[in-house]
Design a binder for these strands. Sequence first.
DNA 1: AAGCTGTTCAACCGCCGACCT
DNA 2: CAGGTCGGCGGTTGAACAGCT
Length: 254
Amino acid sequence: MVRAPCCEKMGLKKGAWGPEEDQILVSYIQQHGHGNWRALPEKAGLLRCGKSCRLRWTNYLKPDIKRGNFSIKEEETIINLHEMLGNRWSAIAARLPGRTDNEIKNVWHTLLKKKLKPYHNKSSQDSKRHSIISNSKYDPKVLENSYLSTTKDDVTSSQQSGSSSEISSLTNSPIEKMTTKNEKMDYSSENSLHINESFWSADDVNCLNKKSKAKVQSRPPLNAMETVGVDSKIDDSMDFWYNLFISAGEMPEF
DNA sequence: AAGCTGTTCAACCGCCGACCT
DNA sequence: CAGGTCGGCGGTTGAACAGCT
């Protein structure tokens, strides 16, 4: 079976998205939800393939995306999770609220890989840590299943069932709070966000690095989250995961 | 100021699994 | 069960930018 390419129609636009396209996409999703991605561009009046629309939305336009530099804690979390999960960017992203897999992948390939080079060769303690983690007892799958399975779905189901004490103990976690907040977002409401001059808060722009600032200022404002509030929640959630690792009692203390 | 090189990151591509008919 | 569609994922690319000479 040979699969037809996603953008087989001629005349579909490729490359960087313009402000008008962003506006159209955001407005459409706010009003109708994304529904079928493939059908969306035609309905919304965009000369893009559905895949491109989905990517643009999930990686850039979605209201709960946190932009700007990664905090030290976030970087450490990525390093630790990468060590356990490998290049499973979406799984890592699921544990970093407001960050996309694409963004994490980029950060890994640009920043963290370099930072890790000296780190990996640094000390015997590090080698010990690596050997412990690569030991079958710390099989990524096992680790993930044991300690990291508190995905959005799990939290949601635990909220519904309320049966597992283990899971229910997580319901007050920052992650849960974030998830709940995100799930409650209603893109079709009249309170939903519109791209205009006030879309970016000053904090949004200030927290960006120099390069991003330049880009952002030449683009429509996009971020939707109240950055200050989200920052504190993300810090909390990092603590949550660290504590979870440690309290599991089997993880070596890094 | 101009040219070159390295870095960043948004976007694309191809593949895969889940689901539907 | 086969064939087709769809959403999602990870790898890769290339334009834009920063920094250096």
